[in-house]
Amino acid sequence: MPHYIGIILDEKRLEQVKGTPVEEKIQPIFGGTLKMLVVEVPDEKSQQILKEFERARIDSRGFIEDVPVAFRRAVFEEIAKAKSLDVIDNVLQRLPEIQELAKKEAEYIPPPEIE
C-alpha cells in the first residue's frame, strides 16, 4: 500500500512551480487556506524512510510524518528541479546529505519572525 508525503507550499514555493506541470497538481486544503503537493511513496520506499529517521511515522491519513525539515525541503527541491512529483528515488539518493542536516536540526531550528 502506498503512503504519501505532503509538501506545504508557501508563496515562495508556489512561485517556483508556477507554469510547470506540477502546478495543476496543487491541492487546496482546509478551505483553500493551505496549498499542498502530495507525493506518492511506494511501500518499500516508505519503509526505507521510516528506518532512516528514528521519529518518522505513518499518521492516520497514511501520510509519512515527523520527518526532518531537511527531508521535506529536499523533496520540494527535487520537485522544483524535475517539474514532476515522481521524485522519491532522487530524494533517497540524497539521504546521507539529509541525515547530516537532520543531525544539526535536532539541536536548533530557527524560529520564525512573527509579530
Binding site: 493551505l34 510524518e65 515527523d66 525539515v69 521535506r72 525541503r73 520564525p112
Partner: peptide
C-alpha cells in the same frame, strides 16, 4: 504530526487549523 511538520518548516498554520 502534519501540524508539527508545518510548524517546523516555519509556516504559520491558517486560522481554520
Amino acid at each position: 504530526s502534519f501540524l508539527r511538520g508545518m510548524v517546523a518548516e516555519g509556516v504559520m498554520p491558517p486560522t481554520v487549523v
